[in-house]
């Protein structure tokens, strides 16, 4: 199999004699099995094949896949918590993520701060954007203290 952008900006998967345009990579269980079980869907949403590991795609294709995944999954990983303030039921966050600095606000932490497991906290802001804190214990002590003060 071969994955490449052709024409530009459109992911194409060629396998033996067949070629699929506008291929969409989709994680089967991104929260519990990150980096495993990647489904490749055709433009109609039908699965072409499933990769158990990214590397199974072959060295040439992995980079293309990573690029496409990064573009498709706009989650961000929280690296540092600069400030958290809870006021009147809304929580105001200022964080550093793998995508850069971000300020956001979450409402009702009861629904929008979800512990996926002991080490994985998912924050969902008022617009529905996802911010992952994982692993929680890897945060620096200050960030951890700020985080613990609200969740």
């Amino acid at each position: 199999m071969k994955l490449f952008y052709a024409p530009e900006g459109r992911l194409r998967l060629t396998m033996e004699d067949r070629s699929h345009l506008d291929v969409v990579p989709a994680w089967a269980a991104p929260r519990t099995h990150p980096d495993r079980y990647l489904s490749l869907l055709d433009s109609k949403g039908k699965e072409i094949l499933m990769l158990e590991r990214l590397e199974d795609a072959g060295a040439d294709n992995v980079e293309v896949l990573r690029q496409e995944l990064r573009r498709r999954y706009l989650y961000s990983q929280v690296r540092r918590v600069n400030a958290v303030r809870m006021e009147f039921g809304a929580t105001y966050w200022s964080v550093e993520t793998d995508r850069g600095h971000r300020d956001f606000v979450t409402q009702s932490l009861q629904e929008n701060a979800q512990w996926i497991d002991e080490e994985f906290l998912l924050l969902i802001d008022v617009e529905g954007n996802h911010y992952q804190v994982k692993p929680v214990s890897a945060l620096d002590p200050d960030s951890l203290r700020r985080l613990r003060s609200v969740v």
């Binding site: 024409p7 530009e8 900006g9 459109r10 573009r71 498709r72 999954y73 706009l74 989650y75 802001d125 617009e127 529905g128 954007n129 996802h130």
Partner: peptide, 25 residues
Amino acid sequence: LVSGGRMIVTLKNGVIIPVVNYSLA
């Protein structure tokens, strides 16, 4: 896209161009 989106333009000659990315905001 997941937790966001992008704008895609299809040209008259069939070429598809991703124009800009944005979050759900």
